[in-house]
């Protein structure tokens, strides 16, 4: 007998309008429409659903093990608020002793 081969669909779902689509799991289905219908009850039985995406797995370009290793980066404090913590102390001082034209000289 012929072996049956199914398409694998990856399922993503959004639980409310402001939430991101989050990966749920994968399933075997015959068409995107069938994948949507199955995804709803397979992975979201107890969750609020706002939106579901299904994507055939072979349509996804994925970073692999080599990329996982390359995702390393040095710490970059200038991209974050981390480097600017000193501002709190400065604002506190200026609140107590505001700058005036005299002090600015």
């Amino acid at each position: 007998m012929d072996r049956l081969t199914f398409d694998i669909y990856e399922v993503f779902a959004q639980t409310d309008p402001l939430a991101p689509h989050q990966h749920q799991f994968s399933l075997l289905a015959s068409s995107p429409e069938m994948a949507l219908a199955l995804a709803q009850e397979n992975f979201l039985r107890r969750r609020e659903i706002y939106s579901i995406w299904v994507v055939r797995r072979d349509a996804i370009t994925q970073s692999g093990p080599a990329e996982r290793a390359r995702f390393y980066r040095r710490k970059k404090g200038y991209r974050t608020t981390e480097d600017y913590r000193y501002l709190v102390e400065k604002w506190r001082r200026y609140k107590q002793q505001p700058m005036t034209p005299e002090t600015m000289v």
Binding site: L27, L28, A29, A37, L38, Q40, E41, N42, R45
Partner: peptide, 11 residues
């Protein structure tokens, strides 16, 4: 007839 379908029809 199909595992995923079993679950959907159960709902």
């Amino acid at each position: 007839v199909h595992i995923e379908e079993d679950i959907a029809f159960a709902s």
